[in-house]
Amino acid sequence: MANNKSIAVKDSNAVVNYFKKNFGVILGLVILNVIFAVTTKNYFTASNILTMLQNNAVNAIICCGMLMAILMGQIDISVGSTVGLTGMVGAYLITNLHCNFFLALVISLLVGLIIGLINGFCIAYLKIPAFVATLATMSIGRGVCKIISKGISIRIRDDAYNAIAGTKIVIPGTEALSANGRVPLSVSVILIYAIILLALTWLLLNKTKFGYYIYAIGGNETAAKYSGIDTKLYNLLPYVITGGLCAVGGIIWASKLQGVQSTLGESFEMDAISAVVIGGTSMSGGSGTVGGTIIGILIIAVLSNGLNVMGVNSFWQDVFKGIIIIVAVVIDVLRKSKKR
């Protein structure tokens, strides 16, 4: 009640505001970077940073959907399975059925959207708790993925398909900055997809009715319903979008690795949920931003890349991720109780 002045006096400067709002996580990100830069020789190099960003671009794309689900006070744990299934469907169509490139893309995307639709329908219209509904679709998706592949990985030898994620934009004259000093740096097109999708998500959440409705439903679903919002429809749509985003993620991985294994996407949901939560999104819904989520994604990225570059055993990486999540949530809780 007392100090809403800090909230009330909204600075016109969006950048300053962004830093103020996400101060804790930004500080965390900077500290992590400093630690790795000081302790690890090849961490703070242009080529490593590019590699790191590219490796986490799919997580960023999934996070766009996960953010919406969590903003509504729900969750989607089927994302990893959907990435695997859509990737597998695309690979199967291209390699085993010699399907047309565009058709394969469209069908993969449709599969993602349909899974999203099933999730959304179960949650919004049948009132199945989100965790349960997406747990079920996760299991179904993973199962179907294994049925299609018969447990065998499928290689993709279609140049057009492999170019989807394999394309790079070379920055001329940057040979000196690269890891081996011979090839110029290049920006993977995956990174560009991720940036575009993050930007679209920002627009969707901040500049459209859809976004306002998502925040309203997450903040108080009944009040939203009484304000004339079709809460069922707007509960469903984010899942459909998430399904589509996962399909994009699946296609990217399939194209990038030029093949799909039936375990593709396993535990992707963990990284996505972690990033969104670290980014300051409340698990009970209603509050959270794309900006915060980006920081969350970067923290996850820096942590796994940095520890890899440092040569730390991957089992420890899981431990560190867990610790960071606890710290982030504790900061969030403390910040909220301070307001009281």
Binding site: M52, L257, S304, N308
Partner: peptide, 13 residues
């Protein structure tokens, strides 16, 4: 494949 890809690209950096 995907896990190895990420880990190896980090290590190559």
């Amino acid at each position: 494949t995907d896990v190895t890809y990420k880990a190896v690209s980090d290590a190559l950096s």
